[in-house]
Design a protein around this nucleic acid. Structure first.
Lengths: 299, 299
DNA sequence: ATTTTGTTTTTTATCTACAATAAACATTTT
DNA sequence: AAAATGTTTATTGTAGATAAAAAACAAAAT
């Protein structure tokens, strides 16, 4: 098989769950735009909905006959894109305890284990290499550099340079910019989480990511944005694996964020710089503490 | 054909030209190490040299019978790696005048034009995407973002952050580090070029690249190193295309480099910072002036 | 005992083919 | 005439196959 129709299946599920009996559906281009797919895929969805008796479809008339049940949806294994499957599978291997730095990565073996072709694995590895966790020797294998202390320090250094820059840019945004409203909303979210910290401290990592993303967007710099994407993915898996969601540490981070937000809102560049530095310093400590204790770089 | 034996051919040429009649050649592993290829490839080279009557080969005995002529070598079209061919071809298209920002990039068309398969082109584009000049819409085409003013400004911003960091790190290197000797040698090269500036100003871009690479290596940060790789490639093609090798501008840059080197050697962090900033400021101007005058980003 | 050569196996780099998806074109409906 | 639907074409995403290159293993030579 050349390609799985995961785009179709995933979009079908997404559209099906939102259907309400007796409502009429909009035009094909509109559905396609809503779902973020091409009209071809949108039509495939309508065709299937029609075949399943969920809608009655005749040209412009598209009436929802019945609410789709869980039974109508495609199982989640079939809706994940191959890229996501490979990413998950690979990250698990990388973060597993037996993945020692210096280890070789074998494309064919990876592909077989994931149950996919080598081309997709290769392309994933090429894309993934920008995160600095693996490295290729030309005409030869990939090497796992690993989530080591060196990696964490290099990452933290760049992160600090970028965030200080972005925070300063944020402080210079005109007051009518949407970002200020977003920041205010985020301040409230922080307060809400703090009020119920014992229950919700585990949700912090998601809020943290959104907060820093908001700051970084102010820089309007593609290299900074790309780097933050990389950080976000690496951290996402790293913290998922290392369940070091210490309540105390997160509470402290929330307070730092609130100070940081206050500094941004003050517009005082010196205050912004200080608050940003303070938070980045403790974020660095958190990162270093979350490392597997033994790992050290091997040449 | 699955794969061209360009590694073999390129290494064969490299080895053949260095042969001297009546000398004995070292062991297979040694030859392989010298050429940076596997022993399998080294043996293929020896086999061919033997077949062509250039050497007499019997187990450990490898005697050079005659000097290879140009006729014995593989033509240069056959020794370029596919990756290099694609890179050159693509950069020429990107930097050509008719390549407007926002343009779509078609994998199949590119592959046909270069005379290669789509897989290689795809992989090249994925790798190339980290330079921020192209962008992919999932399940759809690549878009050329182009060498625009925005690109140049974003690049310059990151470059400045990184170089200020690296320069500071350089200043902290222990005095017995090899980099100090390299820096001194580079100072002399700058003086030599300055003495003969009218003849040699065109060679400056190579020296410039080596100089900044030396600084960046001090940071020992993989993200900074990778970014500088990207800059180097982009600039390499950009300046090759835009022959704006103004004598005056280069002379000024050499003076700035010399000030910068003096500051580094002084070890005074404030002086380093100032000299670095001064040079980066004018480097930014140079970059902006070298842009095609009309190009502006399109969404 | 180590290094070198001879031989075999493994792995990567690349091409080709094809289904899914997007995009373009043509026809119909409002 | 503008927008929607119907139909066709182009392009991407992925699997599978194969030669080149690397790596591993085995035998021979110093």
């Amino acid at each position: 098989m050349a390609r799985q129709n995961t785009v179709f299946k995933e979009a079908y599920n997404r559209y099906a769950v939102a259907l309400r009996t007796d409502t009429a559906l909009p035009s094909e281009p509109e559905i396609a735009a809503q779902l973020g797919v091409s009209r071809s895929t949108a039509r495939a969805i309508l065709t299937r909905l029609s075949e399943e008796g969920i809608i009655r479809w005749n040209k412009r008339q598209k009436i929802v006959l019945r609410q789709p049940t869980d039974h109508d949806l495609f199982p989640s294994e079939e809706t994940d894109s191959l890229h996501d499957i490979i990413e998950r599978s690979f990250m698990q291997r990388i973060l597993a305890d037996d993945a020692a730095p210096g280890m070789q990565i074998n494309e064919l073996e990876l592909a077989r284990e994931i149950g996919t072709g080598t081309t997709s694995v290769r392309e994933f590895l090429i894309r993934f290499s920008r995160f600095g966790l693996i490295e290729k020797r030309p005409n030869s294998h990939w090497t796992l550099k690993g989530f080591t202390r060196e990696f964490a320090l290099e990452l933290a250094d760049v992160r600090e340079m970028f965030e200080l820059h972005s925070a300063a840019e944020f402080g210079r945004l005109p007051r009518d910019n949407q970002s200020w409203a977003d920041l205010a909303a985020m301040r409230d979210e922080h307060h809400a989480m703090l009020a119920d910290i014992n229950q919700r401290f585990k949700d912090f990592s998601v809020l943290d990511e959104r907060f820093h993303l908001l700051i970084h967007r102010a820089s309007k710099n593609r290299f900074i944005a790309d780097f933050y994407d990389a950080i976000a993915i690496v951290f996402h898996y790293h913290y998922q694996w290392n369940k070091t969601a210490a309540r105390q540490r997160n509470e402290r981070a929330i307070h730092e964020h609130l100070d940081y937000i206050a500094a941004l809102e003050s517009g005082d560049q010196a205050a912004i710089d200080a608050a940003c530095r303070a938070h980045l310093h403790s974020a660095r400590q958190t990162l270093l503490q979350s490392l597997p204790q033994i790992a050290t770089e091997t040449a």
